[in-house]
Amino acid sequence: MSDERSRREVLGTAARGAALVGLAGLTGVLAVKANKTYAWSIDITKCVNSKLGALGVDVCEACATDCVLTLSAVRAVNEFSECGRCYICPAYYDITSAVGPDGLPSEKLCPRDAIEREAIGWIDPDDPANNFYEYTIDEKLCNGCGRCVMECKEPAGLGSIRLEVRHNVCLDCNRCSIATACPEEAYERDALSTV
């Protein structure tokens, strides 16, 4: 078994673990919000920032700007099991910025510096290009502006970063102001039994 395949299996296990934690978290939310019958969610196949084929269009920042909360209830999430773990991630770096002396883009993409980059697995001591990197989004800093989501989309990236509503933060407004602003009808109200 190659390093890659064994690591993919580990990552797959980690992703399943994260999904279970997410479910457990959601169960807690449902318990807290037992009187609620719905929750808001984003259809990533409709959101312009993640919709395949929507290339060369402006980033939609409505999820960041239109939430009634000061820091939006929407955050970006990187699904590690789908990430290419690239040396130069177009969601982390501004890949159009000038190249620095280290051979990397000199500027980052995220305006809130909410993405962490870390070499993972066995590290090549001589060649940083010969490593895999994990990109983790700090939920406390992210405001869901969607820029990294747009840059991670195929074909530039693998589409592993997407926007999600944080149900432990969302106020479950009856008329979500993001849903009203959303130009793509991507912001949906789901019956809780189907969430």
């Binding site: 390093d3 290419g84 690239c86 040396y87 090549d124 290009a129 010969n130 490593n131 895999f132």
Partner: peptide
């Protein structure tokens, strides 16, 4: 023999 075990092909 690439020390990372192959070509990097995201």
């Amino acid at each position: 023999r690439h020390r990372k075990g192959g070509f990097h092909i995201p």
